[in-house]
């Protein structure tokens, strides 16, 4: 699912609410059997939701004091209580899958942006979530490097992972998304398959938005 919309439309806010990083005033969020309500945080529910969805950030937020491998095994070891050898095995598998099998012992500072973002994806996947929340994870990357990350995402989707991504890559959204939701001023403007939303938008605002983005 791709989240589109003009700047300030509420895409990041929605994603952060979905991961329990933001509180909200009204409504509720249901993910699987877990329900988040407005008002004070409910620790157990947030924890459940975070187990279902991992999150990847625009600015990577790798842990700079840990090596690539340590970044990935940190949560499985200390949150899930896995044994070290199991965690390492899983991490090596995941890092290989995102194409970083040869950088296990590198430090985050030594990696390019695209490599960092792929480590961040591997780190989120190590908790074996059902899906990933990605907020503009290619925006900070050079155009040539974006593709290595986008390729990984497409690959994950093929394997049945649920991806909710905020993106400004219209081409990618059209090609890869099953569903496109457009947020504007904190409300859903359009919601449907990419062919419908991007090609035959129902609202005038959506048409203007597309014109501006596609030029």
């Amino acid at each position: 699912m791709a989240l589109l919309g003009p700047s300030g439309g509420g895409k990041s806010t929605l994603l952060r609410c979905l991961n329990g990083l933001n509180t909200f005033d009204t409504g509720q969020i249901r993910v699987g059997e877990h329900v988040l309500r407005s008002g004070p945080r409910h620790g157990a529910e947030i924890h459940g939701i975070r187990r279902l969805f991992g999150m990847v950030f625009q600015d990577f937020q790798l842990f700079p004091h840990l090596s690539v491998l340590e970044n990935v095994i940190e949560a499985p070891l200390h949150v899930q209580g896995m044994t070290r050898s199991d965690a390492v095995e899983r991490a090596e598998h995941l890092l290989q899958r995102v194409g970083l099998g040869s950088h296990l012992h590198a430090w985050p500072q030594q990696l390019s942006g695209g490599q960092k973002q792929r480590v961040a994806i591997a780190r989120a996947l190590a908790m074996q979530p059902r899906g990933l929340l990605c907020d503009e994870i290619t925006s900070a990357l050079d155009p040539e490097i974006k593709h290595e990350v986008l390729r990984v995402l497409e690959d994950l989707k093929r394997d049945g992972l649920t991806l909710i991504l905020v993106t400004h890559e219209m081409g990618f959204a059209r090609r890869a998304a099953d569903r496109v939701v457009v947020l504007c001023d904190g409300r859903i403007l359009e919601d449907g398959p990419p062919a419908q939303v991007l090609e035959q938008p129902r609202t005038e605002r959506m048409q203007m938005f597309l014109q501006r983005v596609l030029g």
Binding site: N19, G20, L21, H47, R50, R51, G54, M55, F57, D59, Q61, L62, F63, E74, A75, H78, V79, Q80, A120, R123, A124, M127
Partner: peptide, 19 residues
């Protein structure tokens, strides 16, 4: 962002602080 990254991985606040 470091707090949030750790939180999204399911780490508790004390654990995030310590590790």
């Amino acid at each position: 962002g470091q707090w949030e990254a750790a939180a999204s991985l399911g780490m508790s606040s004390p654990m995030t602080f310590r590790r």
